[in-house]
Design a protein around this nucleic acid. Structure first.
Lengths: 247, 247
DNA sequence: CACGTCGACACGTCTAGACAAGTCATCTGG
DNA sequence: CCAGATGACTTGTCTAGACGTGTCGACGTG
């Protein structure tokens, strides 16, 4: 009966139909999709084809499969929106959340500038840097993984070398102004990619969820003060807003 | 012989072995992997299992498969960087590329504002909009997929309703200033997600590659003129730069 | 020499069936 | 009442084979 593979492949038509049901709300977020056996009967296809259809949706990040339980529409996470306001002086790291629900795991290391980092800072390779690694939590869910680098000569002896998390919950602008540095410009480079295995587990990412990867360069009068060369955000829980004023 | 599924699945072991060969350089970037038939013989597995192994590598973005040709280790793409300059008046859409290598497929439609769009524009649902869908090409490679919406009452009778691609290669700022509208502010919302099947094929995305999805709102004195509610960029070929001036 | 046909070979799609393994509710024995 | 066994149901893995469709070089033919 199922005419094999004429025009649109069967598995794609099945995937399309399931996507339609999810988007129409017939299969609400978190609810189970029909099991493979039901798809076999309903669409008159073989199990392999049904699995192919579900694999398509999984690759799109629309559904999640659990062994022995079934496949369900991926629950929507509350999305955190990061706006340019987050760099306002006095801004809290996550100004849209009550402070009580925030947490941060911090690790500080003294490292030597790699060639790439040295070029960004405009210093010689090997120049000592302060590297900070932070995993931010909100509402008990990991939200952001960040690796920042500071010129050690700039921050040495300042509160920024304090490994307690409190200072890190405020914006980079606030942190730097507290040690007398006036931030004049911030440049952010936005990329997206699939997470590494480490990132996936640290951020508790479901399969099929990409990450937003930011590189931030913080300037004070054309001098780069800080480089956060990998700020990693789960793409299903975060979006970023920017404002551009054409000149 | 092939003991089915004890401990590590066969397809993962085969994938592991192929990954090892690629990383060791035995299969250099751009070179073909053994065809499925060879894997069937070499590892004593069925073709389905061989395909599963290759699908695993494909999902990791390590290899690319082309119908009729084979699977090869993935070559690196040049990355296009989009900076805020792209909204300078007089800027060409892709200012970092010679014009000759640009192309755009354009489709214009008159549509009614959906509730979401109507809210964005601050008009009643059903208000007529001009919808433009554009697929941008550079160097023969699809680069960007965009769906923009304009208030029809604003653009009616202007050159913006011209379906020839030329005008679309210039920036939105330039386009609007050519009909006497002065862009005062642009807001962009950046998200990342896995592409739909349609996007993947239109943008010729390799599997395992996410997309950057932008929503752009173009303002003229607090009035939203244009909403590009889905600008889709391949994440392996694009990165976006923003500049923030803390106040 | 240019061009078109053909065929080998590659991946794409699909079927039908088998057994393994995880999940969960229910039943049963202590 | 509780704990463990059972069994139904689910996805995971794998096989063997069929035919469709894209690629590309070899081989003719004009």
């Amino acid at each position: 009966m199922p005419t094999p593979h004429q025009g649109t492949p069967r598995y794609r038509m099945v995937a399309e139909e399931l996507r339609r049901r999810i988007e129409a709300g017939a299969i609400p977020a978190g609810a189970l999709l029909p099991p493979e056996s039901a798809l076999v009967q309903e669409f008159g296809i073989s199990r392999g084809t049904a699995r192919e259809a579900i694999a398509t949706l999984r690759a799109e990040g629309l559904v999640v499969t659990e062994h022995g339980r079934g496949t369900y529409a991926r629950p929507q996470h509350p999305v955190r929106r990061l706006s340019a306001d987050r760099y306002r002086p006095n801004a809290v790291h996550a100004s849209d959340l009550p402070e009580t629900s925030l947490r941060a795991d911090v690790r500080l290391d003294e490292v030597s500038a790699t060639p790439t980092l040295a070029r960004l800072f405009g210093v010689a390779a090997g120049t000592p840097l302060l590297q900070r690694r932070v995993l931010f939590w909100a509402h008990g869910v990991p939200e952001q993984l960040a690796i920042s680098n500071y010129l050690l000569s700039v921050v040495a002896g300042t509160p920024l070398t304090d490994p307690t998390p409190e200072p890190w919950l405020s914006s980079i602008t606030t942190q730097l102004s507290s040690i007398g540095i006036n931030v004049t410009k911030i440049r952010e480079l936005v990329r997206a990619r699939m997470p590494t295995a480490e990132e996936a587990s640290a951020l508790r990412l479901l399969s099929g969820v990409p990450v937003l990867a930011l590189t931030r360069r913080t300037y004070s009068r054309e001098q780069i003060i800080e480089v956060a060369n990998e700020i990693v955000l789960p793409a299903d829980r975060a979006e970023i807003e920017y404002e551009i004023l054409p000149t």
